[in-house]
Amino acid sequence: MRIILESRGMRIILESRGMRIILESRGMRIEDHERAERELRTLNYYRLSGYWYTMRDVDSDVQNGREFFREGASFDLVMDLYEFDERLRAAILADLAPIELALRALVGHHLGRIDPLIHLRPDALGHVAKRPSKRNPRQTEYQVWKRRFDQALNKSKEEFAAHYREQYESKVPVWVAVELMDWGMLSNLYRMAPENVREDVAEICRMSAPQMESWIKCLNILRNLAAHHARIFNRGFDIKPKLSGDGRLDVIRDVTNRSFGQLTLIRYLSHELGLPDRGRLPAVLTSFPDNDLVPFSRIAAPPGWERHDLWVPLSAEADALSS
């Protein structure tokens, strides 16, 4: 792998050895040169830079990172943080999967009670379905959603999808249709649902429909970030979820746009939906690498977070996983 740097208007292409030398010249301790060069070659200099960014020496006058690292910065710590983030992404995806399936089932069931084909009848959906789409103002929210759904149905290799295409002119009952939807499509269907359906689904999780909608949107973004290998650790999120008055959420009211705040949404929904608690997220957070440069507090978890009601693993299986 090569990296291109700008220096006085000239482009400089560096191999992984050159990258390693630059890091060392800036004060990063690298004990295993071979490993560092291998990781720089296979993981990408810029991907790893997100993990050493907070190790840089900072000029207190301009609050701008200089080109040197603070004492104690090491490539081993960079990799420890990177591997922690890998485990965190894997746990997020694993814990979101059953939440996604539960939401599919709930949305499909409650919509199907009104009409098995309600998703094919925009007139029976809520007012959001009739709004002009932000992405394409010439079409409604429903028309944009329906085009995506039709594509998913037509491309699906599932036997049930082929059955409905061939035998029922693609008229798939909504409780079947949800199984073809990704999280984004399901999120938009929930947004377009009649208000009573939105409230019924939200009430199961002890929140209002606007709150549930914001949570689904936040978790869709989090899921996409994890699936595309983006850094989750020490990240700020643009969208904040709307919280209910549940006292268990007090711990994140000021940090809903930070990693711990977003992860707590997962823990809350898992509890409220009655899903098995494998203890993955608590186990990963307790594995954060102990160091003096990049503290665990950057995740925005408060002291004693592991004793909080939503973060204590519920099952013996979770205890076994964390041991």
Rank of each mutant, 00 (worst) to 15 (best):
168 Y>L: 07
203 E>D: 15
160 F>Y: 15
158 E>P: 06
183 W>F: 05
169 E>F: 14
171 K>L: 10
208 S>C: 08
189 L>V: 05
181 M>P: 00
174 V>T: 13
187 S>N: 07
160 F>I: 14
195 E>M: 15
177 A>K: 00
176 V>Y: 08
187 S>D: 09
192 M>R: 09
174 V>F: 02
198 R>N: 08
206 R>A: 04
180 L>I: 09
171 K>F: 06
158 E>G: 04
163 H>S: 10
159 E>Q: 15
189 L>C: 06
181 M>D: 01
160 F>G: 09
187 S>R: 02
171 K>A: 04
207 M>Q: 03
186 L>Q: 00
181 M>R: 02
190 Y>A: 01
173 P>T: 09
199 E>A: 11
177 A>N: 02
206 R>M: 09
211 Q>I: 06
171 K>H: 07
167 Q>F: 12
207 M>Y: 02
202 A>G: 02
207 M>H: 04
185 M>E: 08
177 A>H: 04
198 R>E: 15
192 M>L: 12
205 C>W: 00
160 F>Q: 11
205 C>H: 05
202 A>H: 01
172 V>G: 00
207 M>S: 02
205 C>M: 14
198 R>F: 07
160 F>K: 11
180 L>A: 08
178 V>C: 02
166 E>S: 12
181 M>L: 13
183 W>P: 03
207 M>E: 03
196 N>G: 11
203 E>L: 12
194 P>A: 14
167 Q>N: 11
170 S>A: 15
202 A>S: 04
203 E>P: 05
160 F>V: 14
185 M>A: 08
179 E>K: 10
164 Y>N: 02
198 R>G: 11
164 Y>H: 11
167 Q>H: 13
176 V>M: 10
204 I>D: 02
184 G>F: 05
169 E>D: 14
169 E>M: 15
182 D>W: 05
187 S>A: 11
169 E>G: 11
201 V>K: 00
199 E>D: 11
167 Q>C: 13
185 M>N: 04
195 E>I: 12
205 C>E: 04
188 N>T: 09
170 S>T: 03
171 K>D: 01
170 S>L: 07
174 V>R: 03
193 A>E: 01
175 W>P: 02
199 E>N: 07
175 W>N: 05
198 R>M: 15
162 A>Y: 03
210 P>E: 10
181 M>F: 02
157 K>T: 14
194 P>L: 08
161 A>G: 04
201 V>F: 04
163 H>F: 15
197 V>N: 06
179 E>S: 09
208 S>P: 09
205 C>I: 08
159 E>P: 10
190 Y>F: 11
192 M>Q: 14
205 C>Y: 01
202 A>W: 01
211 Q>S: 07
208 S>K: 09
161 A>Q: 00
197 V>L: 12
187 S>Q: 13
179 E>F: 01
209 A>I: 10
179 E>M: 15
168 Y>E: 05
195 E>V: 11
194 P>N: 13
159 E>D: 10
176 V>Q: 06
195 E>K: 15
161 A>R: 03
168 Y>S: 04
211 Q>A: 08
201 V>I: 07
174 V>I: 13
200 D>L: 10
193 A>H: 03
192 M>D: 05
182 D>R: 04
167 Q>R: 14
202 A>K: 10
191 R>L: 14
